[in-house]
Amino acid sequence: MKRHLQKAAIGERFPDLEHMRRKHSALFQGDPKQRVQTSIFVGFLLALYIFGLYYIGFTPLMLINGFGKFGIVVGAMMPPDPGSWENAFTFIKGVIETLSMAFFGTICAAVLALPFGFLAARNIVSNSFVHYAARRFLDIIRGIDTLIWALIWVGVVGLGPFAGVLAIITSDFGAFGKLFSEAIEAADQKPVEGIVASGGSRLESIRFGIVPQILPVLLGQVLYFFESNTRTTTIIGIVGAGGIGLYLTETIRTYLWEETSFIILLILMTVAAIDWISSRLRVAIIGARPV
């Protein structure tokens, strides 16, 4: 009896797991209803995942075989080698073309999307129909991947980098329009009210009340999209819309692995350089703030 009391006192001062479990049993068990709900939900996700694996024909043997072949491919990629100086120049020209497409496309998309962003912002256009229609229009454009836009533009202006530029403009127009309108809606309304109160017109309230607030945010987003577009434009050549992607697909389809790895290396270096430059610029423009 005494020992038991002593043990309890010790437990009070140095609580061990068992003691705590006994004392706060409700806390340890949790809400049973929520537990059942969570386990049903997780079970469903897991079942779907297993069905997915089964559907895509996943077997361990296939994985081993595939990665065996993949290992051979990687082995054939070493060392990265363009084959000849002529090829190297062609590939570098492809990279420059890719960068040009990304830069021109991003800037054009941003310029075109800016007025549309105002149109889709609730605090600028109070007409809910215009606002709603603009939003859905942007949604439709964003629902189509850049590669699909590239496919469509190739049909319109023919093969070549120009089709890629137009594809980037179209698909980024949708993304920019949405982001810009969200930035405009998030802007502080007090400067606008101040300008209106001191006799400014509607246009002046936008120019001096909203634009100075959103400009750094927009520039940050444009830079970020330029980075991501350099990645996208490296593959847009797969459908014939210019850039380094054309050579990448060609060398892979003809099993020229050393040239493939040279191109991949080139892409990696370009993307790294662009990321570095644009992160520097972003810090210079808007300071160390997440986009």
């Binding site: 296939m62 595939g66 990696l268």
Partner: peptide, 24 residues
């Protein structure tokens, strides 16, 4: 994350064959 997913898919199609698996 730097190598675009389609590039990976192109290479995986060669080693795993056509079908959804290389895409996944």
């Amino acid at each position: 994350r730097t190598v675009p997913d389609v590039t990976f898919a192109l290479i995986f199609v060669v080693s795993f064959g056509l079908g959804p698996f290389p895409g996944v």
